[in-house]
């Protein structure tokens, strides 16, 4: 059975149908690409999956459980973590603090235990500290740990946001245009990095990306959105040769 099942999901904004009757299923362990021209509804689909936007119609199942109407924090706790197209780090806080915060669901210290520094709370704190540093190191930001997130370079912010999402120990990682604004060398590095973390953390990855070579090289399967509708779904080769895709997507690009 598939890990994540999107069935007949739609979302309207006034007269605009941003996502129109989209159905797809994501298999455990795959890297699933989501492409399409600007305004096609990719980010909206991410928002629907992570509960940030409620659907006008349709259903969402994760591991067989109906999560259609769950609030974002519950969906996150079930194991779906994401990054944002327009980076949403806690800008005034340090890189390290950003990652500490993301350990929330895996810790349970309450108000009093935390304030009084009871042994259990202290032990938990030590664990969070160790894991947070390990994650920073994993994305190469250990040297910038105390820097405010908003002062980091653009690429560093993208990497920090991925590290923050990984701190949730998710099963599914949703990346919204992680390579935006990177040069081609950085994109190649990122591509390798994504493949590595999939193995290391046992992840399923859903990826929105514009850069066609990156998507083609990285993804196991690709879905193409255009004006809210899914116009193609399949392996990179199949999608690249789909006449509808060529017309809708590549036609726009050139």
């Amino acid at each position: 059975m598939s890990l994540l099942e999107v069935s007949h999901m739609s979302r309207r904004f006034g007269g605009l149908v941003a996502v129109n009757d989209v159905s797809l299923s994501v298999q455990e362990g795959e890297i699933f690409g989501l492409i399409g021209p600007n305004g096609a509804g990719k980010t909206t689909l991410f928002n629907l999956i992570t509960g940030l936007t409620s659907p006008s119609s349709g259903n969402l199942h994760y591991q067989g459980q109906d999560i259609t109407r769950l609030p974002p924090f519950r969906i996150a706790a079930l194991g779906l973590a994401r990054t944002f197209q327009n980076i949403r780090l806690f800008g005034n806080l340090s890189a390290l603090e950003n990652i500490r915060i993301a350990h929330h669901i895996h810790t349970k210290t309450g108000v009093w235990a935390g304030v009084l520094g009871l042994p259990a709370a202290r032990a938990e704190q030590v664990g969070v500290e160790r894991q947070a540093w390990a994650l920073l190191e994993r994305v190469g930001l250990q040297g910038r740990a105390f820097e405010r997130a908003k002062n980091l370079s653009y690429g560093d912010q993208r990497r920090l946001e991925i590290a923050r999402a990984l701190a949730l120990r998710p099963k599914v990682l949703l990346l919204d245009e992680p390579a935006a604004g990177m040069n081609s060398a950085e994109k190649a590095t990122l591509s390798g990095f994504i493949r590595q973390v999939r193995g290391e953390f046992g992840l399923t990855i859903i990826l929105i990306e514009h850069h066609v070579p990156l998507v083609m090289g990285l993804c196991d399967r690709i879905a193409v959105l255009n004006f809210g509708q899914m116009i193609a779904l399949g392996s990179p080769q199949k999608v690249a040769n789909d006449p509808a895709v060529i017309e809708a997507y590549l036609g726009v690009e050139t």
Partner: peptide, 15 residues
């Protein structure tokens, strides 16, 4: 503090 900085991002981080 996460909620103060960005409620939506905090929500998406499981808070």
């Amino acid at each position: 503090i996460a909620l103060r900085e960005d409620e939506l991002a905090a929500d998406a981080m499981g808070i």
